[in-house]
């Protein structure tokens, strides 16, 4: 009996194989497996090419394709294109949570935080506690990126270190908040005035000590040279006039440079903080969705 049953199964299997499966009719899931194999080997370009050739009217298959495209583009650091495909994954898809979180993160990284917040709002009716906590965490991170401290405080109230995958990052966001809130940004105007009084002092005030000392030395040396020419050769002498003109240009340049240094310090600080916030928003995401 068993023998005949096997015979029937094999006969059926043979009929299927014998019917001739062409490459275009290949089973969707086996094609996806092959694409994932290429992805795992880092051949993103080839995998994306195959995904592009996979045409389907089935929405659930479209979700899989969009998710894979988005994820591969994300791996290639093409965040804008990645966000575009991840955003298209429907709520019904098992890939929705991961896709939506990473689309939101990509937009946040690209500086488009309003879209990130819109995407994260999609989790409000979600039933999973971990997902809700993650959405709140991401919103807190975005509030810090936008320097909306009140909103951050609101979201931070829900930080309870309950989930191990983001407990450390919750603490770190709190630290960044403290640093950002207590930060006193050097004023470019004040830096300029300080350098007008003592060349290089404005740069030291802006936190660029080495640049300030160098500025003081070269402007100081030029002033001394000009004074030397004035003292020995008189005010009408060509050497004095040329030296005074050059020194004047460098003196004014130093004032402008000090104002720029203050602006640069502020930009560098904000950039560093943004990078840290983005990193700490990213790490728990990868832990929750490996």
């Amino acid at each position: 009996m068993t023998c005949r049953l096997f015979f029937l199964i094999i006969l059926l299997g043979h009929a299927v194989v014998g019917s001739g499966i062409t490459s275009s009719d290949k089973d969707f899931s086996s094609e996806i497996r092959f694409i994932q194999h290429l992805q795992s080997r880092g051949h993103y370009h080839e995998a994306l090419f195959l995904l592009e050739n996979l045409q389907t009217d089935d929405p659930s298959r479209s979700d899989t394709i969009n998710y894979l495209k988005g994820w591969m583009l994300y791996s290639q650091k093409d965040l804008e294109a990645s966000a575009f495909f991840l955003e298209q994954v429907r709520r019904e898809s098992p890939f929705f949570d991961k896709s939506n979180f990473f689309a939101a993160y990509n937009y946040a990284y690209l500086g488009n935080t309003p879209i990130s917040l819109d995407l994260l709002a999609g989790f409000e009716s979600h039933s999973g506690n971990a997902v809700l906590a993650m959405a709140n965490f991401q919103k807190a991170g975005i509030a810090l990126l936008d320097r909306r401290f009140e909103d951050f405080e609101l979201h931070a109230e829900s930080f309870n270190r309950e989930f191990a995958f983001m407990a450390a990052e919750e603490r770190k966001l709190g630290e960044y908040y403290s640093r950002l809130e207590s930060r006193r940004y050097p004023s470019p105007a004040l830096a300029g005035i300080m350098s007008a009084a003592v060349p290089g002092l404005g740069r030291i005030y802006a936190g660029k000590t080495a640049e300030g000392i160098a500025g003081f030395l070269y402007v100081g040396a030029m002033v001394l040279t000009t004074w030397d020419f004035y003292n020995r050769l008189g005010p009408r002498n060509g050497f004095f006039i040329s030296s005074a003109a050059i020194t004047g240009v460098f003196y004014i340049g130093n004032i402008l440079g000090s104002a720029t240094a203050a602006r640069r310090t502020n930009i560098e600080f904000n950039y560093e903080m943004d990078q840290r916030i983005l990193l700490d928003m990213h790490v728990p995401l990868r832990r929750l969705f490996p």
């Binding site: 040396a221 004074w227 030397d228 050769l233 050497f239």
Partner: peptide
């Protein structure tokens, strides 16, 4: 020419 400072700097 007794331009000691200028001589030194330049």
């Amino acid at each position: 020419h007794q331009l000691y400072i200028s001589g030194f700097v330049i």
